[in-house]
Write a protein that binds this DNA or RNA. Sequence first.
DNA 1: CCAGACTGATTGATATGTCAATCTATTTTT
DNA 2: AAAAATAGATTGACATATCAATCAGTCTGG
Lengths: 203, 203
Amino acid sequence: MVKNNKQEIIVDAALEVFRDKGYANTRMADIARRAGVSYGLVYHYFESKEVLFDVIVEGWWDRLYQMLKDERQSDSAFQKKLENIIKFFLDMYAEKPNLLSIFITEVSRSSVYHTARGLAKFRTFFSLTEDVMAEGQKVGFLRRDIGPHYLTYIFLGAIEAFISVMVLGKEAVNRERKERTINGVIQVFLCGAKVESNPLPAL
Amino acid sequence: MVKNNKQEIIVDAALEVFRDKGYANTRMADIARRAGVSYGLVYHYFESKEVLFDVIVEGWWDRLYQMLKDERQSDSAFQKKLENIIKFFLDMYAEKPNLLSIFITEVSRSSVYHTARGLAKFRTFFSLTEDVMAEGQKVGFLRRDIGPHYLTYIFLGAIEAFISVMVLGKEAVNRERKERTINGVIQVFLCGAKVESNPLPAL
DNA sequence: CCAGACTGATTGATATGTCAATCTATTTTT
DNA sequence: AAAAATAGATTGACATATCAATCAGTCTGG
């Protein structure tokens, strides 16, 4: 199956340009030029700039949801699930850096994406993660004195911070860095950052 | 003597419009209308839309840096410093929700802000926080087997996640929620999310 | 021969930044 | 104290540029 399908070429070009210049500063002419096709052909396949962008983002959400659903119903050890979630982001960044970059810079918190539909996507994302956290509490692995959505925020926030640093610095992930990142997030999220002997006074 | 000059009125109006519509979708005409001044007056005080935006963002960075420098040199207990950093974000959100919203949606990760100068601002932000973390390790409060910038990412990532949820949901912070959020972040960041009896197998 | 792939010039809407003119307040001159 | 001069605030129409989207037409494989 040869991949000289112009439609795919246009999507790939759009991924690059959207990452380089951001949605607002991307010209349809830029995408056509980078794809090596005429201006009009982009509109032949995608009715508007917004639709083209949505096609890309929708693909991201699909993968993310699928991964979270898989982890939710899998019967791996709980800690393994958390590791897999982190791994997903790091692997995806290695494999499709443009896609992750767009998610971080144009979707994750950008006002551009704050429609009702955009918000719903986020709620699903958080809700699926919260299911996993709630399960961790249920099986007695995670502490119950902190609400599952709090755990979700902290866990996802930490992951996003790492990915953001990579995206903004256009850094690469090798095997060793991936291990160290997963280990760091897991260690701190599960065991905490303070030395164990150190007691925590009440707030 | 009420300080009611038009310049401030324009900045306040810009804060509102930038938050509501995002930088890209904000028209200078919108700002003028919301401020109740003529279109031209905005340009009388601010030479361009970008300059107006920068004035706002610069003010944010100034406050943030000041707070971090204060905490770095203060001699409070280490945990208190972390609490104060979280508190800063929550108080600022309560006091200037528009400013925090713009930071999250238009600055924090938005490609709009990814100039060399923008990146430098972030490096300073992270670096100041890292100083605090390194001190926590030095005084023996934080574990040393995880690099200080890792601790920084996780800590700031968690805070940003909480603020983002408030911003996107336009939620309010009352005293009780503030306490609970600080407690949640501190508890998990310092002591971890797993139940204490649960041993952590090696990765 | 025709359906769908493909082209790129053209259009039309939109928004930035300019500018000449007017108004208002303060200071200077007579 | 009135008049004149000056500086700065304020106005909104407009010139200009920028793009998204359209469209009339050409090419090509089956």
